[in-house]
Design a binder for these strands. Sequence first.
DNA 1: CTACACATGTAAACGGTTACATGATTAT
DNA 2: ATAATCATGTAACCGTTTACATGTGTAG
Lengths: 189, 189
Amino acid sequence: MALRHAVLAALLDGEYSGYQLAKAFDVGVANFWYALPQQLYLELAGLERDGLVAGRRVVQETRPNKRLFTVTAAGLAELERFAVAASKPSFIRDDLLVKVQAIDRIGAEPVIAQLEERAAVATGRIEVFGKLLQRLRGDETEERYLRDGERIGPYLTCLRGREFEQGHHDWCLRTAELLRSREAARAER
Amino acid sequence: MALRHAVLAALLDGEYSGYQLAKAFDVGVANFWYALPQQLYLELAGLERDGLVAGRRVVQETRPNKRLFTVTAAGLAELERFAVAASKPSFIRDDLLVKVQAIDRIGAEPVIAQLEERAAVATGRIEVFGKLLQRLRGDETEERYLRDGERIGPYLTCLRGREFEQGHHDWCLRTAELLRSREAARAER
DNA sequence: CTACACATGTAAACGGTTACATGATTAT
DNA sequence: ATAATCATGTAACCGTTTACATGTGTAG
């Protein structure tokens, strides 16, 4: 049960509905995990069944009713247990890297295009993360916020998320350029 | 079928047995994917059934017999098809990030220890990648190798692998230090 | 004689993705 | 009218992980 703890951690910052959580997880604002809406509704149901989160129904007139969830004491205890246990190592698993691995034996153009598209997507994400970081630290400098802030967890994971995207972006662009220049050299011969 | 193409791409560099592949995938020398031995044996069986790889039995006297696999023409065509199709975006999914996200509400010590351990593991991997890169480029400079080399796919993915590990390493250490100094400040009060 | 490296698999359980399903309100 | 946003779920499928299973040769 992997999503479990990610959802619990996300709910530490306040009450969220399945729908709100889904948006955060989907866009990647949740910089430490990713999940589809369906999975979240399922997981929230399971968490509630096990008493780790509590949901309260909010009746809305103009919009459909929704359910807002909070972490219970048992949920926090579960997170605590999870944090003490060993983490499994994180690995890269990326279709695009597989394609680049094979690049010398397959057509390069489609892969180059995908690398450039990825870089563009990453640029967007970097901006999103940047804004989130600004919002979290408010008026303070990063240094002071990290030293004195009360809730720095989301800031720290967001930093890693942004750096990951930056690294990914740079590599994609560099690789695309390199492959392009090799294609050009090939065409000349 | 995600492992499929990763295995095909890995087999482009020569004949490998399930066991040899497993080591590469397990240690992370295969910098673009990760898989356990069992899965590889299963996947190789499937790939052979579908005619995408061909296995030949090698009888050994001193060691158990083994089967070496090569990509067939059909396998290469499958890779080609795969490369043209859209790649799904890559996301971070990491237990340790979940723990850091929750850090303000749980005990920090075990998480700090895990961050430091991760950094140490990453240091090891960075070295492995560095050596692999050296071996791949031989006597040439990186620039020349990437411009004129015939098989640069593995080099490029390895570069990304190393940068990822470096980024991960730096973040883990920075975060661990920060959390330690906050713990120290907390203790003083 | 013990541990490690070589060598290959099967079966069950789990977690995540894809497809299916529904329906109201608001903005273009 | 049409598309987007709000809002919540179920079911089938696929891919990964964990546990089980076996056996030889080599180095310490």
